[in-house]
């Protein structure tokens, strides 16, 4: 129940509600960085408004983007990441709902970036023993957007997506657009030279509790919605079980605090990048 003064966290944009969820369930009362916030459709023509605090509260910077309401408790210096694929007509946006996970938001992002766990946690789907080696890939921090990109990633996947017929050598690119925003670009099984996008927008509620907004942007008109959802929910909740058992819940940002394996350079880059930003909320420094 920390109210953080961590400027690096306060000045970020966070997805705090799905537009589908607001349409169906009305105003969303939730938490962001240890504070109460409310997201509701606005009367003045603006699509949505987010407020913090008791009673009338103060109005927060907010905007609607990529199917979600984004808000900030501080003064964001830059916009959320740019994803031009959202403007492509051939793509289908799938809001996979919001799943709560009791751990640091950065553990959720780090797990999303990790290919080494595929054969063990997503056995028979995203990986399979004995094909457990993570081939080398490239990691860079791109400027001026200040995003982490990992390219040339490949992994053998028995069932890479609902639209995949049998196992394929899947190509990946990973992108971290902000500390709580990450997107995976993955071989589209049905169209050559195209990526499917799978993303998570993590909403840090408390230091060790987050709502994870899960979405997909696919080239796939054929698979029924319920099948796409069940596939993604299976993957995500397999991860959730593992994440909730990681100790400590706060992510350690001290180099060497947790032993890194060679395939782990994405994780090392991410942790170093968070440390350089001065992120405190949700790290083991803060929760120790």
């Amino acid at each position: 129940m920390t109210i953080t003064d961590d400027a690096a966290s306060l000045n970020e944009w966070y997805a705090v509600a799905g537009m589908d969820d607001l349409r169906v369930n009305g105003p969303r009362r939730t938490r962001l960085l240890g504070q109460d916030i409310v997201i509701e459709p606005a009367a003045n023509g603006a699509p949505c408004v987010a407020t913090a605090g008791e009673g009338a509260g103060r109005e927060l910077p907010s905007q609607v983007l990529y199917g979600y309401v984004w808000a900030s408790l501080g003064e964001p210096a830059r916009s959320p990441l740019d994803m031009p694929e959202f403007a492509e007509d051939r793509r289908r946006f799938v809001d996979c709902g919001t799943v709560t996970v009791r751990t640091s938001p950065y553990r959720v992002v780090e797990n999303f970036l990790d290919m080494a766990h595929f054969p063990y946690v997503h056995t028979g789907i995203l990986g399979e023993e004995p094909l457990t080696v993570v081939e080398d890939y490239t990691v860079e921090i791109r400027q001026p957007e200040d995003e982490i990109w990992a390219t040339d990633c490949t992994f053998y996947q028995p069932k890479a997506a609902m639209s995949a017929e049998g196992g394929i050598q899947t190509r990946y690119e990973y992108r971290v657009g902000a500390p709580c925003v990450t997107v995976l670009y993955k071989t589209c099984p049905v169209v050559e030279d195209a990526w499917d996008l799978i993303g998570i927008f993590v909403q840090p509620r408390e230091e060790d509790l987050c709502d994870v907004h899960v979405w997909m942007l696919l080239i796939d008109d054929a698979t029924p919605l319920a099948s796409l959802l069940s596939f993604q929910h299976m993957i995500f909740v397999q991860d959730r079980s593992i994440l909730e058992n990681q100790v400590p819940a706060g992510i350690p940002l001290d180099v060497g605090a947790e032993m890194a394996i060679p395939g782990d350079k994405m994780s090392m880059t991410y942790r170093r990048w968070l440390r350089q930003k001065g992120i405190v909320f949700g790290t083991s420094r803060a929760t120790a």
């Binding site: 169906v24 996979c96 709902g97 919001t98 319920a226 959802l229």
Partner: peptide
């Protein structure tokens, strides 16, 4: 198995 959109669609 016929998948039902239990969440988030509540079908």
């Amino acid at each position: 198995a016929v998948p039902v959109d239990f969440f988030p669609g509540r079908t």
